[in-house]
């Protein structure tokens, strides 16, 4: 199961990378960034997965000398942070898209040539 999910995550990262570099519409570039973000989160959680592991929520205090059969909680904590920051980054990029559109009345990336040389 974890192999299939890993393939899904890696394919989503590749799709997002393709979209960021290839697509001309700046609004769709933000969508590609969101896909990229989702793919990275899936890959990170998959790497912490332990076969037959349970969710890292204990129902009783573990007895001395035994390790509870749980999956790795560290990547999950990092991904929790990453998702919330992903929303902030998306909102910030969309704000700039709005401002750029206000300036040039176009969503095409090729119409923004001010700093191009």
């Amino acid at each position: 199961m974890e192999y299939i999910i890993l393939i899904t995550g890696l394919a989503l990262i590749l799709m997002g990378l393709y979209g960021i570099m290839y697509i001309k519409n700046i609004f769709r570039i933000v969508i590609a960034f969101a896909l990229f973000d989702t793919g990275i989160n899936i890959v990170m959680v998959t790497i912490g997965y332990l076969r037959n592991g349970m969710a890292p929520i204990l129902d009783k205090m573990p007895t001395e000398g035994t390790t509870p059969a749980i999956v790795d909680p560290v990547p999950q904590a990092l991904v929790l942070t990453s998702i919330v920051i992903g929303l902030g980054v998306s909102a910030l990029m969309l704000t700039y898209v709005l401002k750029l559109y206000e300036d040039k009345k176009s969503l095409d990336i090729n119409s923004f040539k001010d700093l191009k040389w």
């Binding site: 974890e2 959680v45 998959t46 997965y49 999950q76």
Partner: peptide, 10 residues
């Protein structure tokens, strides 16, 4: 998919 990977918080 996160739920399948035993990560209910995420």
């Amino acid at each position: 998919l996160f739920l399948l990977l035993a990560a209910p918080d995420v």
